[in-house]
Design a protein around this nucleic acid. Structure first.
Lengths: 348, 348
DNA sequence: AATTAGCACTCACCATCATCGAGTGCTAAC
DNA sequence: GTTAGCACTCGATGATGGTGAGTGCTAATT
């Protein structure tokens, strides 16, 4: 159905969407016929608009006002009409220069990326660090906190540091712990957590038979340390910029939005959904299902290092977002970060 | 001047402040003379009110409306009239039960505390972790990320993990690094970062003469690792609750508030100011100097472990905050966390 | 001398009402 | 097929007036 739009209708839809993106206000036939040199009278434009409304791509807030694109209208625009220009050399260089990654911790890089995304787009920047389970093991350390509590520090290939407290046999000495970590560090190096878990599980079963005290401790501690899921790391930057958007101007909407951003849970769910795909993805409004994010659009792209640890970054803004501007920024940033991650691990 | 208030004036001021805290609306003479059984007619109350206004403790938004307390009015209320009741046994137990600290990382504890503070007070909870410089050294590890980049992981006595990337001599081998960290771990154990820095500085000078390769590396790496200030860790919880307060109901105020919370810088400055004091502190509105926090009050208390690492927690809300409810919560929580921190380190 | 009843006055708040204008749909003319 | 013309819709804006909570002042009361 949507593909059967003739060229004129497409042009007019495009014009309306773009005007609406710029103004956040209903677009009238007069404005379209004047600004975009389609050489059509307002009346003709009105006829087309009526058709587009019939098709569900436009709607009018009330009988005698201009049209605004519906969700489907935006969807059609994004799927069919949106031309994403690539950044030119200059813009790419500028974007590169926005970042200062020198001697930054992984966490700082993520946060910085969020800040820059938000700053450039003037919407809210999101960065989700690679999931624990997808990271590659580099090193593990055990530090005794108290009699029965151990602090486990885990470092991934890309330098992401995570820590966790586990309970442990109080009879283990510092030497034992050091031996255990040495053993694990040589044994698990280069495996993804997923692989590590499988390996641990297998060896735990085998080892019921053999009786190697050290190995037993090692397996027990490491499986306790690496077992549970670690909370996802999500960085949200520039939430206040969303409050400047006219679509979220009522106190109630503001509250809801900030609350949603604060809990992070819904955002993480949403970002997770895009993890399997490649390239830039766009989720629109309540198509992205959650009521609390109604009126929002999300532009995301995954980044990854060569070892396959996948993170996601993106921008969340009103559905009436400037896609043609934001999409290439998100796209290029994801590529940039992928390269940075690999550079961080560069061996020797 | 303020102390010269006679009892009647004090009673009326107190009644007005408390009514205003409850309603967020100007308080009239009628309401006061009825609700609080002072046995005074509205007219008499009005006379007192006029006096209090003269003194700068009250003001009226317009000629014919009730009075609201000024900043000075609140200040007087807090300094002189506020009676902070202690929590009874039940309430203390409830508060203790709100927390589940079992096997939590330091970071999680801080975040949890913020959440609970926010939940109980219905305002915004703040928790600032002890400053890096005030923490006590427990362990340091070096992990090579790339040729010239080392990841330093530092663990404090209380289990706070911080990490940092430094540049380092590419010729150092893994063995070297291990020796270095072993050396440092035995050498610096139990010192505060401040003491560590002094020690390092002194030894670096001495060692220009001697020629111990290992020690030289150790000193160089550790001073690089522990030199700079690490960004303060501040956890902000329940920012969206502030948006429900009538004093921040305009979009502009909301934006500004969220922006201020987001950048954290101003909050950290403010919390820093209270670090030297003991017990609960209250900062009111723009007395706390920053324009962006106008209309806000901050109730804080420091927590610390026996080693002297000091963190700050508190609640930020509108000036019209329910002090008598929030102060004891903040107070007791700070005591609770201090005890938890010491329990975390409990030796053996 | 302190308290209070009485009263005129103020002013935010709310609902009503008229006006205005941008925009529409429809019809008839081009 | 396109467009000029026109009646109509409806949100936004602003003026108007009534209502009521609250005040300050004065004079009467205790």
């Amino acid at each position: 159905m949507a593909d059967t739009l003739n060229e004129r209708s497409q042009n007019i839809l495009e014009a309306i969407v773009e005007d609406y993106i710029a103004s956040a206000e209903p677009v009238g036939s007069r404005a379209i016929s004047r600004k975009h040199n389609l050489n059509l009278s307002p009346a003709s434009v009105r006829n087309v608009m009526a058709d587009l409304e019939e098709m569900g791509l436009l709607c009018s807030p009330h009988t005698s006002s201009g049209r605004i694109p519906t969700r489907q209208g935006f969807q059609y625009y994004i799927d069919t009409l949106l031309e994403v220009r690539n950044l030119n050399r200059n813009e790419k260089q500028n974007l590169r220069n926005s970042y200062r990654f020198k001697n930054m911790r992984m966490e700082d890089i993520m946060q910085e990326v969020g800040r820059v995304l938000s700053g450039l787009s003037q919407y809210t920047g999101l960065v989700m660090a690679p999931k624990f389970i997808s990271t590659v093991f580099r090193q593990i350390e055990f530090i005794r906190l108290s009699q029965r509590r151990l602090l486990v520090i885990y470092v991934s290939e890309s330098g992401l540091v995570q820590n966790k407290v586990i309970e442990a046999d109080p009879t283990l000495t510092a030497q034992d712990l050091e031996q255990v970590s040495n053993y694990l560090n040589s044994e698990l190096n280069g495996l993804s957590i997923q692989e590590v878990r499988i390996k641990l599980k297998r060896e735990l079963q085998e080892d019921r038979i053999r009786y190697d005290q050290l190995k037993k401790h090692a397996l027990k501690l490491s499986s306790a340390a690496l077992q549970d899921e670690v909370e996802d790391l999500l960085y949200v930057s520039g939430a206040s910029l969303m409050l400047g958007q006219p679509e979220f101007s009522t106190p109630e909407q503001m509250r809801r939005l900030i609350k949603t951003f604060e809990s992070k849970k819904i955002l993480i769910e949403l970002l997770d959904r895009g993890q399997s795909a490649q390239g830039v993805q766009i989720f629109i409004g309540s198509e992205s299902s959650h009521i609390d994010l109604e009126g929002c659009s999300l532009i995301t792209s995954n980044f990854s290092n060569q070892k396959g640890a996948i993170g996601t970054l993106g921008v969340i803004g009103p559905v009436r977002m400037n896609y043609s501007q934001v999409v290439p920024i998100v796209d290029f940033t994801a590529q940039l970060i992928s390269r940075v991650l690999d550079r961080e691990v560069e061996k020797k």
